[in-house]
Design a protein around this nucleic acid. Structure first.
Lengths: 219, 219
DNA sequence: TGTACATCAGTGAACGCGCGTTCACTGATGTAC
DNA sequence: TGTACATCAGTGAACGCGCGTTCACTGATGTAC
């Protein structure tokens, strides 16, 4: 009974390293996949390496994820969920609507720099099952934060993402996404050390503030 | 002697399909690589497929490019050269400095939509030898167009690309690059048919015009 | 509490695959004399 | 113009590699009675 308990109880003992059943392989594989992406990039991702890191045979993942794409899809979905959280976290340290919009962008960039390979995975076609419900929902939510925060400032609402969306909010998104993409690709120099990251974030702030300086007045 | 003549003369006859020497394998491989990228994306690229399309054994490319990365590097360099040309072409249909800056962005986006996989290759770490001189030069030149065109409008000059660059020109680049990236990744819907592409370009124009509306006044 | 059984979550061997790279080779081309 | 030779640009066989996927299997877990 208590042998079935998940989480802490499992780790507390560490006495059963050879347990036949893993306990929470799905989560362990997702963790492993994130680590592999971080260390080797999207190009270097393999299912077998994830299995190795989870301490399990390479056939085991099939019981939890149909195939490599299935695992990557979950990793991407989790990424979007974290991206949304990062946007909201950075935004909610501010109360002024302008600063809140700026904060949203800063959270976006911060997530990208700290999870570059995952960020790339999230926005790359073909690696991931875009029909997946969790992924689609998480992806839409991360954009929705922009729309909401923009609306706080300008008091307008926007249709779901589409060519007919308001050009202003798309401009906001494109700017932030472009900056994040360029940063991740190393166009602004390395971002390995904490100091380099802080530097880059400072640069992001200057760019975004420059953009706001000439933005239309709030409602 | 005339059998050595390159180009048209070689194609004119078509009588020597079995010629032992290809004539211009390097160029043929670059063409093939672009086609493979277009059809299969960065993920689907293989050296052997390029050789197949060039009608040559898979060991032949090594005589012209050290390895797969060597070929991809040349393809990326060519991509940047074309990107620069596209920017300038779109820019130079206008005379008004504001419209010229907008045109530069339009050319950028147009190139990206028409060569999505190549665009991705150009801006992806690890696939390409960034130390390559032709590539570095071509890459810098494509950004230089922004700087030049921006300077036409505002009369300032900027240091080479770096964190200390003027935030305004970086904002311009990030916006355009972000839009192009999102478009290529299908975030604005499919861009297969001519009509879809025209639609997207129209949307780009609206977004960039919206951005200019609130830009600082010219010099 | 004990037992029988179904289900679940792993194992590990085997498969076929296409890849990049290397190698000794050979035919074609260009050049020196 | 002819010949000898060096160089160049291909061939095709072979290599080792790690991959994803499949399969029959087995040990562990949960449940019904």
């Amino acid at each position: 009974m208590d042998s079935r308990t998940k989480g802490p109880a499992r780790r507390k003992s560490g006495a059963r390293p050879k347990a036949y059943h893993h306990g929470d392989l799905a989560a362990a594989l997702v963790d492993a996949a994130e680590a592999v992406l971080t260390e080797r990039g999207v190009e270097g991702f393999t299912l077998r390496e994830c299995a190795r890191r989870a301490g399990v045979s390479h056939a085991a993942p099939a019981h939890h994820f149909r195939d490599a794409k299935g695992l990557l899809t979950q990793v991407a979905a989790l990424g979007f969920e974290r991206l949304t959280a990062a946007e909201k976290h950075a935004r909610d340290t501010e109360t002024d609507p302008r600063k809140r919009l700026l904060g949203t962008g800063m959270g976006y960039v911060e997530f990208a720099i700290e999870h570059p390979a995952q960020f790339q995975l999230m926005f790359q076609k073909g690696l991931v099952d875009h029909a997946n419900e969790r992924l689609a929902k998480a992806s839409a939510a991360s954009f929705q934060v922009f729309i909401e925060t923009y609306s706080e400032l300008y008091g307008t609402t926007f249709p779901p993402i589409h060519k007919d969306a308001d050009p202003s909010v798309m401009r906001e998104w494109a700017l932030v996404h472009g900056f994040a993409t360029l940063a991740v690709q190393g166009q602004f120099g390395p971002t390995r050390t904490a100091a380099e990251i802080a530097d880059l974030m400072e640069f992001a702030r200057r760019v975004f503030e420059d953009a706001q300086k000439y933005a239309p007045p709030p409602k």
